[in-house]
Structure formats: structure tokens, C-alpha cells
Amino acid sequence: MNKFKHFLGIDVSKEYFDAVLILNGAKEKPIHNQFANDSKGVKTLNQWLKKQGATNQQTLDCLEHTGMYGKLIIKYLMGFNYSLWVEMSLKIIRSMGLQRGKNDKIDAERIAIYAMKNQQEAIIYQAPSRTVEKIRNLMSLREKLILTKASLIRNSKEMKSLDPEVSELSDKFQKQTIKGITSDLKQIEKQLDLFIKEDENLSKIYSQAISVPGVGKVTTLYLICFTNEFTTYSMPRQLACYAGVVPFEHTSGKSIRLRPKVHHMANKKLKKQLHMCALSAVNHDPEMKEYFKRKVQEGKNKMLVINNVRNKIVHRICACIRDNKTFEVRKSA
């Protein structure tokens, strides 16, 4: 039995958003409206939905991941106790088959139809805690500062071989900037540690995940942010698939027999972090080191083995979270 009778599709842009409402599954008679993307606009949306008879208990609201532009809408709709489904745009697009034409109204209608057709698979959005939200913003800022600092240093080094005089002048004026960025990065690290320490549940999850050999602070924090404290992806295969470390079969009939490969659709940032964890594990974890050496001697491709190690690390982390304990290194017989 379906829980929802009405379906709202929202197409978000910077200044406004389009909303298309399907009442009682009548997709032939969609109702469209447009609202300002601010607090007043979302409150007006709520009033409009009530006027149409779409109560929060019977309405499924669906919108795409749009980063910062959708935050206000999500915040207020959750405050109004609507069931909210935040879906990948690519999944919505591919579910529609061949489409012609595009505008904001049509996009909102397609999202509403997608929600109606796939309501059984709907994942109701759970807002991250304020602490996780703060960590996510700090991690994003940290990444930008690291890239800026690396870019300044790299440009200076490249210029040194071409024009030492200009390079010296550049170093002079960017010295304080680099120093300031370094100081800011240290302050961010301290603040992240403070956030972890102050939140009891977060501190517990953090200590469990980081106890896995090869896993460091940055990877652990990314995992916490991307999985919403391991509530979105709690099963190891789900998380491994999301991180792009699960190989998939690619065969068809008798003629096509390709080697299993990981899919390109993945969280690239998390995949990169897990790759660094795997390299650390095969160098410092005796069990992984022996596994890597054995598989390579059997003739396995090194990158394939590294990917297997990434997968094992994900399984170890999820097992620690599931069993509510830190990782215990196996003692050799």
C-alpha cells in the first residue's frame, strides 16, 4: 500500500524555484506555481500546498541535489513536517527515457512524476546534525585553502626556473598569504577536533572508524559527512558502491566478456581518500601487507589488489560501527 497520495516536484535555481503538484496521482492535471527562493517563498509554498489540499502527511516532496541553493527549501519543508526526498539528478533524468524540450516548469513536473512512479524506493531525507553541518563546511573550506596554498607554491617554483627575479618578487608578496593560510589551516584542525570532542555520538563513531589501520582523520571526517554519521550508507556494500570501490561485471551473450571494473559514477573525493588509506594499509598493516604481497605473487594486477584493499577497509569500518567497537588487530598464531 502506498503511503502518499500527492507528489510535489521542485526545480531549484538561485533566485526562485518552480513547484509542480500532482494531486491524487492525476499526472494529466499537474498544478504549477513559482516561488522566490527565500524564507518567504517557502512559507508561501506551504500555504499554497494547504490550499490545494496537499497535507504534509500525504505529500511526498522531491527535489534534486542542488547544493547551497536547496538548503533553505529543505530546512523549511522539514520544519513543516513534510516527507522529503532529495534525489540525484542523473537518476531522475535517466528514469524518464527520451525527452524533448526543457524548462524549469517541465523539470519540476518530471521530478513530481519520478516521485510518484518510484515512491516505494523513496529515501526520506534526514537532516545532518548541526555539528556535522559545521564539519562539512569546515572540510570544504580546508580543501579550498590547501588548493590555494599549493597553487601559490607551485607557481613560484615554476617561475624560479624561468625568471628568478620575478619569482623572488612573487615570493615576497605571497609570503604573508601562505603564512596566513597555514595558520588558518591549523585553526581549522583545532576546531574540527573540538567539534568531535564536544559531540558524544560523533566522538564514538570517529574513534571507531579511525581505529581501522590506514584510516586517518580526514578520511574519517569525510565518511561521517557523506554518510550522515553512517545512517545513509550503513551496509558495507552500499558504502563501497557509493565510494566507487566495487567492481561490476560487464558481459553480454558469448561475445562480450569484459573484465569487471569499478563504475565511474562514484564519490570521487571519498574514493581518493580510500585509495590513500589502502596505500598506507599495505605499507603499515601486517595483514594487508601480506595480502597484497600474496595476491601480486599470484599474478593479480596491483591496482586490482589495491581496490580490494579499499573494499576491505570499507567493510572493516562498517563492521566497527555496526558492532559498536574499535578495530582489533588479529594476533598472528
Rank of each mutant, 00 (worst) to 15 (best):
S211A: 07
N308L: 06
L147A: 15
P128R: 02
N283K: 15
A108D: 06
I73H: 01
I92M: 12
N56R: 12
R237Y: 14
I224C: 03
H275W: 12
I74Y: 01
I123L: 12
I93T: 12
M1T: 10
D184F: 11
E28S: 15
K14M: 10
Y125T: 01
V212T: 02
T182W: 01
S252A: 14
K5E: 14
V262Y: 02
I123F: 09
K197S: 12
K40Y: 06
K71M: 08
I205R: 09
E229A: 13
F80E: 11
A333Y: 11
N103A: 10
K302N: 03
K50D: 12
K172D: 05
M276D: 07
G79D: 13
V132N: 02
D323R: 05
D107K: 12
G70L: 04
V329P: 03
K325Y: 02
A240Y: 01
Q119Y: 05
G67A: 08
L72M: 10
V212I: 09
K271D: 04
P236A: 03
L192F: 09
E109Y: 13
H275I: 04
K269W: 05
L72P: 00
G53H: 07
E15M: 11
K179Q: 14
K75Y: 11
E64H: 06
I196C: 06
D193Y: 04
P286R: 06
D285K: 01
P236I: 03
N103I: 08
F4D: 00
H6I: 10
G97A: 09
E290A: 15
D171S: 12
K331F: 07
K3W: 03
K197I: 08
L84N: 00
